[in-house]
Nucleic acid binder design. Structure first.
Lengths: 344, 344
DNA sequence: CAAACACTGGACAACGTTGTCTTTTGGGGT
DNA sequence: ACCCCAAAAGACAACGTTGTCCAGTGTTTG
């Protein structure tokens, strides 16, 4: 593990001053071709790589954005992060990431880490709980909240209209004649599924149908398997004729249960696509919440803020309307593939 | 966007010297309780967060490890990265990540970026092509190659015995009486699938069966859908009675094709599990290449190297055998779930 | 041919932190 | 009351880089 070369060493080898090497490396000013070549030769020989610590320290800002999500093992966040990284790379930014594991405490720890790493901006999928603690951080770097909205003013938010689209999904089932609709995958820990549940309730209320608590079930948790929940409901005499899965993991369970019970007669809509959803018969109708679109929108907000910061450095009085926090609702639609169009 | 507070400001507010604040923050030496409290109050009031750029610059080393993979959208790498991050967090390390998008050129660029970020270590899933360019970097920080091995000596490698386990999978099909076995998902770009193809060929050769080129097909690529490939083969009079999918994406295509054609009579083994694989009927037998196990083994190697580095700082002459590059083959097995045990 | 002029190269300080070394403080023993 | 010693606090340099400013060089023009 040799220590990397420094400007001094390159300068000594090339027989110039460190400042000249700096100029060649950064290419800001013109340097006489022969000197330039000598420096580049030295750079190559010593395998010189600029020290970003020193550079960022001097410059007063780095080139890293943070991404904090539930877990990268969730395909939804994997796609989202993928989109963020691709755009960040193009913009010359590094991506540092951390997971909350669904716990507020760990979320705080991750945010703190990001602050210490002096990220230029933070993209955060907040877990439930108070987020007042974010306030001071927001003064140091822009924070874009994704996937779920938060009660506090002043943050950028990129999310999906969970309530509205769920309402539309339930309306869709109602329109196909269903009156007995189950909701699988409720989880009070997640604001998103809570919102989806509200959409479910609103839709039923508008149709004059009472919510039956025994048909509102938790999704996959440590001790509950969504497949078991469905099997249980389908074992009763009085059964739902349609099932809405509030998240893809729940949907996989529901699909498993319906498939093993050979109950193609039960209508089914999933919130979020999953692999093989189109292979099952009937293929699964789903709410298309596009993770890439959310990721792209989030990183674009970040880039806008960074651009604004650059502008403001030149002219601190400049008015930059794009720099104000915004709430972006990413479009969502329902993709009909059969399972959601089954008649009761 | 206020500038974060510095040690100087905290020191001024607390009425002490910066060194004392540094001591309180790092908790190395004892500080008189009253002074300590005053400093902590100032830290809280100013929202002081240490500047890791300055710290890393002074210390000569940071606390970040890099992870470079094909794409985080691949569930295999998502799980792997998840395991790496969890362990890194526990060790107080930050994870910075980048994707190659399967192109050698972009891989180089990502490695360069990591070097500039002065990562403490790098976990890399190399794409094919020459990796001689890694040699100089290896002198600056340890590099652990994952998932695929590389021709160069001197690197840590954590991988799966692709050839051996594939051979076992094909042997498994042979043992169930199959003689006509197709291989879907070959891709010369990936050393892993190349190795798997070799395993396939070895197994057939050992059984005295000739490889039929028309049954060795590429997996999903930009212009080839694995499902179409399978449908094509099953349209012929002379068909394979068993199919081996060389990667999970190919497997999803194969599953789709078999399922839509209602060909439960065709045996099927997948390299890698995929969601719903256990839901299909018959449930899909698969080679269990545990991504978490690979991730854990890789980050453990990294931690070992960093520990060794710390030891060596104290005693540069110390002999640390664990620090030598190693090749770790992570255990793999075949999970029988039905589809691989179908008779011809 | 000389003088002004770009243009190139170098010395020095500073970013915020920690390590080393020195100074101050406080408390105990005589 | 004095001195000594340990513990606590401070002064200063240094990490590797870039920005500012100044000196030197060669080129072009009056």
């Amino acid at each position: 593990m040799t220590k990397p070369a420094t400007l001094h060493e390159v300068a000594a080898l090339a027989g110039v001053s460190i400042k000249t090497v700096s100029r060649v490396v950064n290419g800001t000013t013109t340097v006489r071709p022969d000197v330039r070549d000598r420096v580049l030769a030295a750079v190559a020989e010593l395998q010189y790589v600029p020290n970003s610590f020193a550079r960022s320290l001097k410059m007063g800002s780095g080139d890293t954005v943070g991404v904090i999500i539930d877990t990268i093992a969730d395909p939804f966040f994997a796609s989202l992060t993928h989109a963020v990284e691709a755009r960040a790379l193009a913009a010359g930014l590094n991506v540092i990431f951390g997971s909350t594991g669904f716990t507020p405490e760990r979320e705080r720890r991750q945010v703190e880490r990001m602050a210490m790493q002096r990220v230029e901006a933070l993209i955060l999928a907040p877990v439930s709980g108070s987020h007042a603690y974010l306030e001071p951080y927001r003064r140091s770097f822009p924070i874009v909240l994704i996937d779920r909205s938060i009660e506090i003013e002043g943050f950028d938010v990129v999310a999906v209209d969970d309530r509205g689209i769920t309402r539309r999904a339930i309306d869709h089932l109602l329109a196909h004649g269903h009156r007995k609709i189950a909701f699988v995958g409720s989880d009070a820990r997640f604001p998103t599924t809570v919102e989806r549940l509200v959409g479910y309730e609103e839709s039923l209320a508008a149709a004059g149908i009472a919510v039956r608590p025994e048909w509102v079930r938790p999704g996959p948790t440590v001790d509950v398997d969504a497949a078991d929940v469905v099997a249980e409901m389908l074992a009763e005499d009085d059964q739902p004729t349609a099932i809405f899965a509030a998240n893809p993991r729940a949907a996989v369970g529901v699909a498993h249960a319906l498939h093993t019970a050979e109950r193609a007669d039960v209508a089914f809509i999933s919130f979020g696509d999953f692999p093989l959803a189109k292979t099952l018969r009937p293929a699964v109708t789903y709410v298309n919440q596009d993770p890439e679109a959310i990721g792209v929108a989030a990183i674009e907000r970040v880039l806008t803020h960074l651009e604004a910061k650059k502008l403001r450095r030149k002219d601190p009085t400049a008015e930059i309307p794009e720099d104000e926090p915004r709430t972006i609702i990413v479009d969502t639609d329902i993709v009909e593939r059969g399972s959601g169009e089954v008649a009761p």
